[in-house]
Write a protein that binds this DNA or RNA. Structure first.
Lengths: 174, 174
DNA sequence: CGGTCTCTTGACGGAGTTCAAAGCTAGTGG
DNA sequence: CCACTAGCTTTGAACTCCGTCAAGAGACCG
């Protein structure tokens, strides 16, 4: 990428700071941004039919976060994205991004590769989920993602691992 | 895309036919192709620690199939892709594809969008899986994917929906 | 301190699995 | 074209993992 191209690309990002518990996206809104996290920690979650929060993803420093379905199809979102800690992002708006993608062929390549890596990451997550029971999922999580285990309250980890806090508590004891 | 470009792109595809039960990819091999299915039906599956087959995906006419992780990272695959019926594909080999992607910027765009759509499809699948119990998953599957329900044996549907054949049998009765 | 949020404990229940056996079906070869 | 066999589907009983409910104990923050 030439220096000019990089400038043009970088210029379309905006730095934003979200307070603890602030929302990057709320259910029912359309997602207009891809966020790159400079600092902090966020979660994606939805409310199930009984009003309980179900966490589908965490993201921290150097991760991207968005609701891909809402962002790509520009339809209203089913999920909330919320800061767990105070969080600073570099965020790019959809129409800005589209413009640059047309101007800079290398960007298409970059975002293609990023999307492929997302497919891989999600499929690995599924694989991990399918092959392990609750206990193994928890142990794996604590072992491989200690950053999250430190910074995220237990009941959120339980939700992410698709366990009740009560059952997770049992597992930790025994 | 210009006519020349399209010719160059189309030329890198090869038509192949796989007999029923033939493998498009075997565990341990590296996946070198993306396959577009012209005709037929395939499944992706792995063997769990007890030697039982676990189906992760079906694909039929007009769908793409590959092992994204193995294809992108060129590492040995954990899954098998096998024809359930005799299947004809248009298949493109990785290095051929890479060459064209460099030559034809529009292709990068095409495959970026395709990868994004895969992310959306997989996440929808996960959502569907998380929110429904076994009975609902089966009914949803039969209702929305009748083609599969007709053409795929029951024990494979059970595996795909993550149920035992015995339990699925119960569900159908009651 | 007082209240809300978080984590733990234990009794009970239900969705789904496991195992074993028997009935059914369809493909294959003779 | 039939018979045989291997593969597929059904049944039922015992069992397990994990969720639910209810109650209480800490812990953090104003």
């Amino acid at each position: 990428m030439s220096e000019d191209e990089f400038e043009a690309f970088y210029a379309c990002f905006e730095e934003k700071t979200y307070a603890k518990r602030a929302f990057l996206l709320k259910e029912g809104e359309t997602c207009h941004h891809k966020h790159f996290i400079l600092n902090g920690l966020v979660r994606s979650f939805y409310f199930d039919e009984r009003g309980a929060e179900n966490i589908t993803q965490f993201a921290l420093e150097n991760w991207w976060v968005t609701d891909t379905e809402s962002f790509v199809l520009q339809k209203s979102s089913n999920i909330n994205i919320q800061a767990i800690e105070e969080t600073t992002t570099l965020s790019v708006e959809k129409s800005e991004l589209e413009k640059r993608l047309h101007q800079i062929p290398l960007l298409e390549r970059f975002f293609r590769i990023m999307a492929e890596n997302m497919v891989i990451a999600i499929q690995r997550g599924n694989d991990f989920y399918m092959k392990m029971n609750g206990k193994d999922r928890y142990e794996h999580f604590v072992h491989w993602l200690p950053d999250f285990a430190q910074r995220v309250p237990l009941y959120m980890i339980a939700s992410y691992l698709d366990l009740t806090p009560e059952y997770l508590s049992q597992l930790r004891k025994g």
